[in-house]
């Protein structure tokens, strides 16, 4: 199957400053490294020096968290230009962003905020994705979000929304399996049914992460996309089910808060690759079957 990204079908890790030296020194067998674009938008210094060195040995996935594609307002042209110069410099195998907004009225909230799913918001996201792809001169992947609230005005299902955007812009999708679990539990949906309906042929990358568990005002389960712990078994099982539909796909372990030592991250990548290996020839691992 032709994937909408050039990332290898292997497990990758988020690149963290605390691990720069370790990675350069020991060149661990990791499929790719993913960076948050915004952390490499300074003019120079150690971030660029290390990314330069690491990009010589590993495919790089550029993951934006600040473009605010779901915003009501126009895209920030200066931010697009910064993304373009990163892409020109590091030639990442993939560029991805979120179905979310984070900037309003020039204030940046440093969080991925939700949007209602309506024909109007869909058309706006389509025009923003078009603009991004045209400006960057390449295809992007759009990621399904973790959400904690719903909107009364929403009339379109999330998967239909994403599929429409793909259809009309030619973009690919980043399937965050942890986000599927978080949103499904939060909105009493069936995560397996979500995966079964997802347009997997559009998926260029998968994200896995650990969630935190809380309860809402009515005492219902409320999962939070915390990226602060190992991937939980239910998410691994859902991942296994996902791969049974789409085969091995580049898979990132996201661990952004309370970042552990590199060995712990590496072990998480190995776990994901073990699941992937079970799908090399179409078979599934019995542990999760």
């Amino acid at each position: 199957m032709l994937r909408p990204s050039a990332l290898p079908p292997r497990a990758g890790l988020g690149l963290k400053p605390a691990h720069y030296a370790d990675i350069i020194e020991s060149k661990p067998d990791v499929g790719f490294f993913e960076v948050h674009a915004e952390n490499y938008m300074g003019d120079g210094g150690p971030p660029h020096r290390y990314l330069e060195a690491i990009s010589e040995h590993y495919p790089i996935s550029l993951h934006g968290v600040g473009l605010s594609i779901g915003a009501e307002g126009p895209l920030d042209k200066a931010h697009l230009a910064r993304l373009k110069s990163l892409i020109d410099r590091y030639r990442p195998a993939s560029f991805s962003e979120h179905l979310a907004w984070s900037t309003h009225d020039s204030a940046f909230f440093n969080d991925l905020l939700p949007l209602p799913y309506t024909p109007q918001t869909r058309d706006r996201v389509v025009s923003h994705v078009d603009e991004v792809q045209q400006f960057l001169g390449q295809r992007m992947l759009l990621e399904n979000p973790s959400t904690y609230v719903l909107f009364e005005e929403s009339t379109i299902d999330e998967i239909d929304f994403l599929a429409d955007v793909c259809e009309r812009t030619g973009c690919g999708l980043l399937l965050d399996v942890n986000n599927v679990m978080v949103s499904s539990v939060n909105h009493r949906l069936d995560p397996v049914a979500y995966i079964d309906r997802f347009p997997v042929e559009r998926v260029g990358e998968i994200h896995l992460a650990g969630y935190d568990e809380a309860v809402d005002g009515a005492g219902d389960r409320l999962l939070i996309d915390a990226h602060a712990s190992p991937v939980l078994d239910d998410v691994f099982s859902l991942y296994d089910h996902t791969l049974s539909r789409c085969g091995p796909v580049a898979t990132l372990i996201e661990w952004d808060n309370n970042v552990p030592d590199f060995e712990t991250l590496f072990a998480e990548a190995r776990r994901a690759e073990a699941v992937m290996e079970g799908h090399q020839s179409g078979k599934t691992l019995s542990k999760f079957a």
Binding site: E38, N39, D76, F108, N110
Partner: peptide, 8 residues
């Protein structure tokens, strides 16, 4: 509020 996504 931050005025830019460059949080540093």
């Amino acid at each position: 509020r931050p005025r830019s996504p460059l949080i540093f």
